[in-house]
Design a protein around this nucleic acid. Structure first.
Lengths: 344, 344
DNA sequence: TAACATAATGATAGCGCTAACATCGAGTCA
DNA sequence: TGACTCGATGTTAGCGCTATCATTATGTTA
């Protein structure tokens, strides 16, 4: 025979037969129970349970040309920064029928492009992508995707559709300015990975130091390897050995800053007396450290929340008033950059 | 008219028309290029690019009753432990056509059950779920899912299908035994969240102390709130104030252990001289800390890798020889539990 | 050269669901 | 009472793709 077999699972027709109704009634009972009388609803529920029926997402998406997927692309799963944003996205999507489809681009624009293609083939309800440095092809696909698109983590002049983030340049600059204001004069930079955002932090750092006539390229230590506490410890000790006049470091993230603290402790350098340390993002541990560590607080959770809210707004037909939301940042000045602080 | 509109995107038929071939040839050219002559392949590729054609996953999945989704359920996205495992899963799936669909159960068995239902409705190729404490309904669904299922992070006697992990009980016991062996006598326990796995670590801890006649429930501090460095710092100081005889703590994860170190430093308690500290998981920072922190190293990356390998094996028709893989753990004894260690 | 593989392509009919329209009975109101 | 609304249910025809079989062109062998 010419028949296909399917997956062998019970279908909506099986449920309909068992309940003695038509398939469409089952479909309605499942999607919008109020449209079906209580009597039939009871019979249908019973049949669903009896057959262990699970509706087929793909068939549903195909028939309605509507999926319930929100595609989310992040460059890293290990980085706490994105974990916070993801948590916000999951929280904000809670209760809505939307499902997250998560992609990990591993800090590669090419990989992001590949994933954009794969994700769009699911006809997502919306897309959330990290950063503003998409490849031209990825950008084109997203522009033509016919769904809301939110770029997160950063702001920039030319959104694909919508944007939520903050200026990493301004953050880096503020951190450097703080160190200058605290009286540090030989300020170094420790940077790992050097993706577009950390690069812009460095640019902001440099601008502040340039403006103060204090920039010294020899005090900048960057690597493309991924960030870690160990790396921060190593980089700091290298730099301190190479340049004994170093009196402060801005670390392009908090892992490095924590590592720098440990590195200083191992090298017998007192923080903040001999060395000031500032990080970026203000992870929870910064406040708990001893001494407490200065950082630039960023609202990762807010970024995720706003991104989902913008999407909901568009889907509800009430597009948000502003296409670009800058959530800013906040300097958290703590003991590690307080020259008047003396350890207990 | 009775026509539906679809999503308005180009379909495989549009590509076929443009290339002057039949749809099925386009389908073949896209899925298995060798089956189509070079001449047609060229025309088809051109048409695909010209129309910006993106195939529809849902239609494909429906027609072939086969999706390329691997459903992965983890209890947390913020926890580094799962981040490592996820990274391994993504890495191991690289190059295969399989896509990860990630779900966040937030440490709730009920939420996990709900997500199992949602995920199975996508007819996944395989499922990876965290833990062994599924609800009966979730377990039943997974057993009947007709796809490979791997339970990860833990081992237990009764797998749904396959398992990769290690014994948290044994890990907790080994940590406690180490502290006993190092000569500590008033050993406390700091625990956050207290999900099934951390509870089993506590049980292992207790067993070791019971066997040594040293268990003191008053030295156990647990909370159901989620783990953090700050929490570790707070719990340690509370416990040390309440019980000045405390001479060591086993923290049910590394965040708490790091916090305990900071808490001790703030309280002027020297580590390891006055207080030994051991953590669990051996995150990268443990080796970088000052003093370096003892922990139980677990192979989170290996868990993810093995899970995917098992799935690939089953899909290739060569089921793995063992249904349960215990990757064990490894005690990393460092300065924080070395009573002979003196700070520089 | 007949008989038969083999490769390349096509026609057709679903996959399991839902949009769009159709029907039917019960109430409503002038 | 007849015209009409309205809610509940059903019929039909796709959504965009691929499994399955059919066909045609191209060698290959005895």
């Amino acid at each position: 025979m010419r028949k296909r077999k399917g997956a062998g699972r019970p279908t909506i027709a099986d449920v309909a037969a068992q309940a003695g109704v038509s398939s469409i009634t089952v479909s309605r009972a499942l999607r919008d129970p109020q449209k079906v009388s209580e009597r039939l609803r009871g019979r249908i529920d019973k049949a669903v349970r009896a057959l262990n029926y699970i509706p087929d997402t793909h068939a549903s998406a195909l028939a309605s040309s509507r999926s319930n997927v929100v595609g989310v692309l992040v460059p890293s799963l290990t980085n706490n920064v994105f974990a916070d944003t993801l948590r916000a996205i999951y929280d904000a999507l809670d209760g809505s029928p939307l499902q997250v489809q998560l992609g990990n681009s591993r800090y590669s624009a090419a990989e992001q492009e590949r994933l954009v293609g794969i994700f769009l083939s699911q006809r997502p309800t919306a897309m959330i992508v990290s950063g503003i440095d998409q490849t031209p092809a990825a950008r084109k696909m997203l522009e033509e995707a016919n769904c809301p698109v939110v770029q997160i983590m950063e702001t920039g002049p030319d959104p694909i559709d919508m944007m939520v983030g903050f200026s990493h340049f301004a953050g880096g600059r503020a951190a450097a300015q703080h160190l200058i204001d605290q009286g540090y004069r030989h300020i170094g930079f420790l940077g790992a990975r050097m993706d577009p955002r950390t690069t812009r932090r460095l640019a902001g750092f440099r601008r502040a130091l340039d403006d103060a006539g204090m920039f010294d390229p020899d005090l900048v230590r960057t690597t493309t390897t991924s960030s870690s506490v160990t790396l921060g410890s190593v980089l700091l000790r290298e730099l301190a050995r190479h340049r004994p006049d170093l009196d402060a470091v801005f670390c392009n993230n908090d892992d490095l800053a924590l590592g720098a603290l440990f590195g200083a402790q191992k090298a017998g350098i007192s923080v903040p007396g001999q060395l000031g340390i500032a990080g970026f993002n203000d992870l929870e541990m910064m406040e708990a450290a001893c001494p407490t560590l200065t950082s630039i607080r960023t609202d990762r959770y807010g970024i995720g929340r706003h991104a989902v809210n913008m999407i909901h707004a568009v889907l509800d037909g009430t597009p948000p008033p502003r296409k670009i939301i800058d959530l800013g940042f906040e300097l958290q000045a703590r003991q590690s950059t307080d020259r008047t602080y003396r350890a207990v």
